[in-house]
Structure formats: C-alpha cells, structure tokens
Design a protein around this nucleic acid. Structure first.
Lengths: 342, 342
DNA sequence: CTGAAAGCGCTTACAG
DNA sequence: CTGAAAGCGCTTACAG
C-alpha cells in the first residue's frame, strides 16, 4: 500500500509538505504542489482516513439519523443525501430510530461513542431538540422539520412549511365540497404533539382552515394518530371508519399512510374517490403510480437533501451560523379527490 | 475524553493488558479482567475506532453495495442489515450503483480507497463476479443472487432460487388459464444476461415452464427488459401492450416493476385483473396494500439479510469457508391474477 | 499473565 | 516555503 511516506520519497519532499498539499494549505510553493500532486496521481494514492481522523480527533463519518423505518419518502431523501455526500468525497452512516423514540438522546449517545463530525436528522421532534440538543456541539442539520425557533448555533434546518402544506391539503378537500373530513397520522401521545412538532404543525394548519370555512372539527374523533407506515395507516383508517362512518374525505399526514388508507377503504367497501376522497403528504414517486393516482402535497426531497448537505459540508469546515430555509411545496391534484356524493 | 491510557492508570494495569481485556484475549487473569472491565464500565469508556483500525490496517466499516436505486425490496433488506449490524456494534456504509453498472469494479475501487473490512453486495451480475472478483480479498457476501458456482473462497451468497421462483410465477399464471403471457424486467443488454445472472435465472425458469406446458414463448416479443423501478416498469409494460396487444397476463420480475405495470394497465384502459393478470416478484410489504393486492413471489428479506450478516461477521474474525444457502420463497396469491376472459 | 516499546499513517506546531 | 519531530489512541510481538 502506498502511504504518505512513499509520496514524500517519490516526490523528493517531506511528509509534512505532502500533507500540506493534500490538505490544500496555502503556504506551499507552486512547484512543490505540482510535483506532489503529480506523484499522487501517478501512484493513485489515497490518504488513510483512519490516520487522518485519529489526528483530527473526530472519529467517524457524517451520520444520518432517520426517524421511522420503511419510510419511502425519507428513503428518497437518504439516497439524495448519499449521492451529494459522495460527490464531495464524504460518506454517511445511516441509523434508524423508531417514530416515537427520542432521536436527540440517541444522537448524544452516538457523539460519545463514535464522534461523528456532523449529524443529519431526518425528521425529528422539536420538543426533544429543545430539551436536550444543547448537549450536542457538532454541526447538525434537521431536515423536514423547522428548528429556527430554537436558535441553536449549530443546528440548521430545511423543511417544507408543514402548516401551510397541510392547510392547502384540507383546503383542497373543502373546495372539492367535503365537510366530513378525517385526519390520519402522527403521534398518539398528546404530550408529544408540542408546538413545533411535525404533527402539531400539520394539525394546526388543518384546524386553521376548518375555522376559516366555519366547518366544525373535533380532534377527538376526526383525528386518528398513526405511525408513518402502510400497516399503521391501514389500521388508523379502519379506526377512523368505525369512529366516523360517514367521513367523505381523508387527509393523511404522509403518502405511506394514505396508501395504507386506500387499501383500508377498499377492504371496507369504499371506492376511492367515489365514496371516499384521499389526499396524502410528501408526493413520493410511488403515489404517482398508484391506481387511482394519489392526490398529495409534494415536498421537494431532492432540494431538501441537497441544501441540507451543502450547509453541513460548509459548516464542517468554516464557522458559519446555522441557517433555516423553507423549501416550497406543490399540491398534486391526482385522482383521489372528487366531489362527495349526495 | 477518556482513553485507554486513563483506563490503564485507573485500573492499575498497563495499556497492553487493558487492550487485551477489550479484545477478549484469553491470556488475561480473571482478576485483571474484572478490575479493568469495572473501570471501563464506570468511566463509560469507548475505544477509539480510528486508532484501532489504523493499527489493524483496515480502514472503514462494512460497506453495502446496492445495485439499483429506489428499490423498495432492497430498501427493506438494507434496513434489516443495518439492524443486525448495529446489534453487533458494527456500522455499515451504503453505496448505490446503477442497475447496469459493474458493481465488482466499483468494489475493487472501494477496497483501494477505503479498505472496508467486509462487503455486502445487494444484487449483482454473476458475470461481473466471475470476471473480476478474484481481485478482491476481503470477506464478502452476495445477497439475492447465487454465487455458489463461482467457488470463490471469500464470497458467500444467500438468495432465493430464482429459477424455481419464476417458474412458479409462470406456472401460477398458466394454471389460472393464461397462454398469452408477457414477461417484464431485467437487463436489456443481451450480453449481460449470461448464465447465473439474475435475469437469466428468472427467464430460464419461465421458459422451462412454457416448455413443460407446450406453450410457445418467443423471447423477442414476449419479453421486455426494464430497470427495477416504477417508471421503467410503466414504460416497459406500455411497450409490451404495443408489441403484444392481446397479452392476458404479465409476470414482472419485481414488484416495483409490477406496480408500474399496474398503472400502465390502467392508463391503457385495461382493468386488473379482469383484462390483465399481473404477478410480481419479491413480495414487498407495499404490494400487500395495493388495490388490487398484488400477486407475487415473496422472498424472505429479513432472513436473507440476517443470514448474510451473520455469515459475514463470523468470517470477519475466523477463517471459515464461504457458504451458499437458498432461502425459501412463497407464492402470494393476491388479487391480480384471474382466469382470462373469453 | 503482564509490561515496555514500536509502530500504524497522518497532522501540526515549531524552528529555520 | 520546508523539514524534523511529537503525538493522536490503539495493537501486538517480544521479553520476562
């Protein structure tokens, strides 16, 4: 294996100079840089990342902490993150955590055990961040949730305006003529649904619209919580049908849940969209191919991933303030929303 | 930060002894082990993996090389792999590669650049392995394809019997009364479809069944290649409808493709399963929730992942021969296969 | 069974 | 601008 030592010998410079060339230090002569780079290219030399990290005292790569398993929307963001990182020669380790577990506590543990240089949270509960994030001091990015209200200097966030997105979803249903609307998805634990939490944001957006139109909405029986998975969406929709049999439209807080709900509709003898309208959230590629095509509020997975990675990579090397940005969403009309019967 | 040095000082033993305790060397006295472990626990000490790997001259973690992006079936295997690895204190880096690119050449490059200690291939082209795998000398596992015929000492494989699985899929269609059957999915490049290649295996399984029933099958127009994605499945199905308008049943080489095909059926005015029967492959959770429920040949993602990881972890530490195991499949009847009209 | 010491491949003050 | 040298935290012959 060729090491920095070989490059030094072959180029006629010292190990230190070679190291400076590799790390783009400014104080290297043009000639030295040229020669060393030439040898590096010729030998196909790759610095040993362990030795490098050992010196720099940071242990592992960037870690991505994913909230919830089997979530296709997050899956597509993860792919984009990996692609972006690889282009910059970085690699990512992905950790999954249950929808209802505390990602910030896990992050703290990871920081102790593996010392990642940076963290990307894919989904998260703002309350957990408020409580414990101060104990994390490496650069972090939160994706799909808004952390701007928290004011942590090392936590950026990139997300859709969930309040507005949910509002548009419900608005879309109401304008189609629906009044008996059920909402499915999010945390069952009332304590969890604090301000800033995704579920809260989305629910609040919905309630504002109901209020605007003067349509009553009773959270206690028009809202059924659900993990972000198809089986859970299925069960939650079934529970909704039981509890609120004449519901004419469903807003599901994610497409995965919506797809589970579509199957639940079929199994309970409801035709979509004739008997029941459904609109989802996320706009995953799959929902575009479902029959009927799922109506949804589309988040821009690629842009969220790209902005998040770019921000993290910059802050990994330069002390810049964290930033927070809202990524635009788009309502996909689809084929699952229709005027209610009668 | 507490290091091995602190543990040595605190326990009254030398660094060497502490290291031996950590690495479970047998030649440590019971007392030393007890004391050192006690201090490690008390201090919450975590060995620095960079230093460890630097010494051991292996660079990074286990790397998972995934063939094809946005593949939900592989996605679920990846999740299982991560879960399994984490339980053993290992971490995995995931790399994606296009369906039609050469994963073995990428692996060779990775071995040079990052020196992973082990590699898990998720999908792969046996021909690529035959040609170049000899240049890889770390323990590897190939999942969902069979590498037993290759005889590499450092390459295990765990997969479904694709020949038998595909045969059963086609058999299922024929027994339902179909004769005009189209097959969708796999590589477009004829050269790619060598013996042992997944597409070849599955196609061969199909052709044997046609032969058994004396039903003619012309690969040139009853087979349409397709990447393993929904949009590609959609396009391929559309091409099939054009080329073979009175096709009554489709066997799609993956559920993802099948789901794209279902949408294509709808868009071309075909009702599933009344006008067109469809059976997929993989048995991903999603297809269980589609309307109608997709018929499919189910691979056991969890078992494939678990066996693969266990085998790799063992061979990482002990020199054992590679092993090859066939994991059973199951035909899910679903709701998308029905007797053809007329 | 244990300790002292070399060395893994790199980075980075320090001195020039 | 460059080199010599210390040291990051660990493992592992070697000697006892």
């Amino acid at each position: 294996m060729t090491t920095i030592k070989d490059i030094a010998r072959l180029s006629g410079y010292s190990i230190g100079t070679v190291s400076r060339v590799i790390n783009q230090h400014p104080d290297v002569s043009e000639e030295a840089r040229r020669k060393v780079e030439e040898v590096i290219r010729r030998e196909g030399y790759q610095p040993n990342s362990n030795a490098k990290l050992l010196k720099q005292r940071s242990t592992s790569s960037i870690t991505v902490l994913v909230k919830g398993r089997m979530n296709i929307f997050f899956g597509s963001i993860i792919e984009h993150i990996q692609t972006e990182l690889r282009e910059s020669g970085e690699e990512a380790i992905v950790e999954y955590i249950d929808d209802f577990d505390n990602e910030v506590l896990l992050a703290i543990q990871l920081c102790n055990e593996r010392k990642p240089k940076g963290l990307i949270f894919l989904g998260g509960n703002i309350e957990y961040f408020r409580k414990d994030f101060a104990r994390i001091d490496i650069p972090c990015v939160l994706l799909t949730n808004n952390a701007s209200s928290l004011g942590f200097a090392n936590l950026s966030s990139f997300c859709t305006d969930d309040t507005a997105g949910s509002a548009e979803a419900v608005d879309f249903l109401i304008r189609a003529g629906h009044k008996k609307i059920g909402i499915v998805g999010g945390s069952a634990d009332e304590d969890d649904v604090g301000e800033g939490h995704i579920d809260y944001e989305r629910l609040r957006g919905c309630e504002a619209v109901f209020h605007k139109y003067g349509i009553p909405f009773d959270r206690r029986y028009q809202y059924v919580p659900s993990r972000f998975s198809m089986p859970d969406g299925y069960d939650a929709a079934m529970k909704m049908f039981e509890r609120f049999p004449d519901v004419t439209a469903l807003f599901c807080l994610s497409d995965i849940i919506a797809l589970g709900a579509m199957r639940a509709a079929a199994d309970s003898g409801r035709k979509v969209p004739d008997d029941l309208s459904i609109i989802g959230y996320d706009g995953i590629p799959y929902s575009y191919y479902s029959v009927p095509r799922l109506s949804s509020v589309q988040q821009d997975a690629e842009l969220i991933a790209r902005k998040g990675v770019e921000d993290l990579l910059i802050r990994l090397n330069y002390s810049r303030p964290a930033q927070h940005e809202i990524i635009p969403f788009r309502v996909l009309a689809g084929e699952t929303v229709k005027k209610p019967k009668e």
